[in-house]
Write a protein that binds this DNA or RNA. Structure first.
Lengths: 342, 342
DNA sequence: TATGGTACTGATAGCGCTAACAGCTCATGG
DNA sequence: CCATGAGCTGTTAGCGCTATCAGTACCATA
């Protein structure tokens, strides 16, 4: 499947440099540099000449050289565990939204919830000397923490505030979120409560939600009547399967708390298909407040994680670089939907 | 919400350079450089000394300087329209999978389906002199094409092959995919067929699918009995709404072809909730083969877009940089699911 | 012993750009 | 008439690293 083929570039010789533009337009490299960056005064005719020459040649500046010379890099590293669960893309949206107005540019790195991978990603990113770093979570390897702490740039840890930030932090308390959901469930009169979640030792936020959840249960003299974990595969499908398993194993269960909305949605579809009375016979709740839920036949109870706002605030911290370390706590709201009675 | 605050770094003075490591370990900068890059011969004791000094100091190399000096950058630009529709994250997975073994690193840029934005992203990326570029689609502004063509690096346009690639291309024929789906639908005996899709003038691939689809219809003497477009919002919800609208407006419609699985899933849920006989009274089909569908009560007919494989092949082209321009066509398989009768 | 190689280390010269400063020209005002 | 400064342009000196070449020491071979 090969085409006759022209090489990628009809390059006369080397790749273009400032010198080429400077020669083509008859001014010094410095003047070209000034024009191309809109910095300092350049007369209108000169500016025109330069711009035209640059355009004609198809010159693209070399930021590597520029960054080295100016000691300035307009990049912001963003380190997240995954792109495929709908929550981080929304955080990215918030970040881009704010950064767009500042000349800064996000660069994403994905860790797949692996601490060593995270360390490698952080190292790699720092080696490009970014203007700031945004990182999901508060749990990192000691080496990661050390690198970040001494990078001399603003660091924002996002999503979570239950812990000890390196520098800035923006997020919600997942422990509190879990507790709050448990309280709402108990208040609605449910007593036989099960938890269904991901089998991910490094999803600290899900873990904290569960901790908070159990804490509130035990304060009410209750404990989980069942729990079920999964890993990999289609979350929606897993939600169905896990729900089936729990209902089978613990037939008198009356509430299912899911660690995320996707498996919750699967569970909801399953319960409805089984003809179970939701929320009368059994209640359901998820976490995240993903948009997807709007399209379901019944609205799953959930808590939004303030993702957009977290992204925005984190980006703002990078852009403004306050000298004082800030911790911004956001407060998710419980959306009862149609799957908690009352 | 301000903490007592330590500044981000307890920096003694400047940020570390090779010179610091070289002084701390008593060898030349060059030797340190060799150790840190595993290049050339360095005696074991020297290597140890250097590594220890680097670790103790917390040295992180400056890739900017390194890249400038060596004229080599281990970055691959990846330009995609969106992160939020599940298809590109999977392409990214394929890319990372292959790149991981090569020392190359993907850098993602998002265009939101805006050609001007794409041009800006490409310019920005090229200014970092990456080792290659992977770009979704074959439609770009003339300036974009020109920049890419003369960048002198491997360029891979992905997803689509119905057009004229700049250099390499890996993808499927969306026109053919649309045609194929139409043929299957007609063969199953459906005759009153409607299309439901996104209102996005720059989603050329969806447009090509529709073109192929209509082409096959008209070859069978048919034409669409209705069409409905949406933009923004929860795709699942929009799917429900659009489906309701079409069923309302064109009650005798017997097939709904959706431009993506997400709205298709919404439509399916709606039809089931209405108690419609699927696929007897009405058939449905989407496009993409997203994992999500596995969790639905009934399996939506779809065609997978070979996303993982596209990512892999694109990355391989970048890594191997064949001098001949390659066009690799992949062939999606039709998954009839439970929503086309027959 | 001369010769050549191998293993290792260092000195030098940039990579392509920008910060900082040094000019030059011309208008203004004392 | 010169002093002053604004407006514009050029010169110089790196930014922190790596390619390249030039050693030095030591061993093996002829």
């Amino acid at each position: 499947m090969t085409r006759p083929s022209d090489k990628p570039s009809p390059d006369p010789r080397h790749t273009l440099t400032l010198r080429d533009v400077s020669e083509a337009s008859g001014v010094s490299e410095m003047t070209v540099s000034r024009v191309l960056r809109n910095r300092g005064d350049v007369s209108a005719p000169t500016r025109e000449k330069v711009l035209e020459a640059a355009r004609a040649l198809g010159y693209v500046p070399n930021k590597i050289a520029g960054a080295l010379a100016s000691q300035r890099v307009n990049l912001v590293g963003v380190v997240i565990p995954s792109l495929s669960n709908m929550v981080f893309p929304e955080v990215m949206t918030g970040i881009s939204e704010v950064l767009d107005g500042t000349g800064l540019q996000p660069v994403v790195g994905v860790t797949n919830y692996l601490p060593d991978r995270e360390e490698a990603v952080i190292y790699e990113m720092l080696s490009w000397r970014p203007s700031g770093m945004i990182i999901a979570g508060l749990e990192h390897t000691p080496a990661s923490r050390a690198m970040l702490a001494r990078a001399g740039i603003p660091i924002v840890e996002i999503m979570d505030i239950d812990g000890d930030p390196i520098n800035h932090a923006v997020g919600i308390s997942h422990r509190r979120a879990g507790r709050q959901m448990a309280e709402a469930i108990i208040a609605a009169g449910y007593r036989k409560i099960a938890f269904l979640g991901t089998q991910m030792p490094n999803d600290f936020r899900a873990k904290k939600r569960l901790e908070g959840f159990e804490e509130a249960l035990s304060k009410a003299g209750l404990k989980l009547v069942d729990r079920e974990f999964y890993s990999g595969g289609s979350a929606l499908l897993k939600g169905r399967e896990m729900t089936a398993a729990v209902l089978d194993r613990t037939p008198d269960v009356d509430f299912l708390y899911y660690s995320n909305d996707m498996i919750g949605a699967g569970g909801l579809l399953y319960c409805l298909a089984q003809g179970l009375d939701v929320p009368g016979r059994i209640g359901l709740a998820g976490f995240n407040g993903v948009e997807l839920l709007d399209g379901l036949p019944r609205k799953l109870a959930t808590m939004d994680a303030c993702r957009l706002e977290i992204g925005r605030k984190a980006a703002r911290l990078i852009a403004e670089a306050p000298s004082e370390a800030q911790v911004e706590e956001l407060f998710p709201t419980l959306q009862a939907g149609d799957t908690i009675r009352g």
